[in-house]
Amino acid sequence: MTEAVVIPMEHGLLLAAILFSIGLGGVMVRRNIILILMSLEIMLNACALAFVVAGARWAEADGQIMFMLVLTIAAAEVAVGLGLLLQVHRRFGTLDIDRANRMRG
């Protein structure tokens, strides 16, 4: 019986942190709304990965349940986000988020 290859928890969490930072950087740097949405998805999935890793470490089902929840939220968020995206495009004729700054103080 071959021993299961155990990936250390630290590696998984490090990956999740890197993914989260990439997503966060995308949100802050990108101007195109589609790419911002995609970056948000990456951040969500980074969180979900952290849950799964933690669930595996303590052999609890909670982590996978939380993953399902995050997946659902991500789907809902994409639905709303794409709707907003269409409206922004219709109103401003562009997908550049910096042009949609009418709410400035």
Binding site: V27, M28, I97, D98, A100, N101, R104, G105
Partner: peptide, 18 residues
């Protein structure tokens, strides 16, 4: 003073939050 922070720039908001 406080209303100058309301730039309407979404990316600035995100950066400030981070």
């Amino acid at each position: 003073i406080s209303s100058t922070t309301q730039t309407g720039q979404l990316r600035t908001y995100a950066a400030v939050m981070v």
